[in-house]
Design a protein around this nucleic acid. Sequence first.
DNA 1: CGCTTTTTTCACGGATAGATCACGAGTTTG
DNA 2: CAAACTCGTGATCTATCCGTGAAAAAAGCG
Lengths: 123, 123
Amino acid sequence: MAVYPESAEVPEILYAGELEIRPDEGLVLATGQALTLSVREFELLSAMARRQGTIVTREDLYRTVWGGELRHGDRSVDVYVSKLRSKLEAALPDRRFIHTHPGFGYRFQPQPSRNVHMDGSGA
Amino acid sequence: MAVYPESAEVPEILYAGELEIRPDEGLVLATGQALTLSVREFELLSAMARRQGTIVTREDLYRTVWGGELRHGDRSVDVYVSKLRSKLEAALPDRRFIHTHPGFGYRFQPQPSRNVHMDGSGA
DNA sequence: CGCTTTTTTCACGGATAGATCACGAGTTTG
DNA sequence: CAAACTCGTGATCTATCCGTGAAAAAAGCG
């Protein structure tokens, strides 16, 4: 199948929590199960995952995923972040990936949003 | 290994105790964990951290973060120092960063928790 | 101490920024 | 050709930010 040029590119695979992203393949696995993402959703996820742990501005994301400059008032990034969150949460309810930093941008990082702490009150 | 072109600035990173501040990115890490600060909070923290160990006046901080002159009776700096302290303490309860010097201003410096001040109260 | 000055914190309202929904046009698929 | 899907926009709703005024607390001082 895939034959890599002399520069010997290794297939890129990104990991984040129980997520596995294969940018070359267009595939995302959540705990081994494949997610169905649209092209935009996938590109956005890949772009964020490549910069895990850092804050990325909307302008930056738009340039990377859409190409060209983000026009003032364009909400595309926000909307696709929302769609992405929705699908990620459906797949992995107990984990948050995309964090908003108001005034700065978004940060992608798997975080145990609120791990069920064991209180003694349980029946 | 990132190599920066001549024209590019080396990313500024400030350290203070278990705090890591990345002014260019808008990111603050406390023991590796990201804090969520507002723009003002972040700018104020950066401004103080750049002058670690020195006393900085309110006028000075206002000029740097807000721009323009601090008007008589304006308590913005105090209020944002308070907000900042609150978030820092939530993240790092055992460490004090912002110290008040009444009549002079504020000093930013990480101080060990085992701050057993030697007063003469002993028997 | 008791009083004055300085600092800290809270609560509020207007402003800004972000999240989400619904829709229409365009595409893809079968 | 029809059904299903994608994409981006506009509109609405929600969350967060920011600076102010005032009360509470702390510090300074005689």
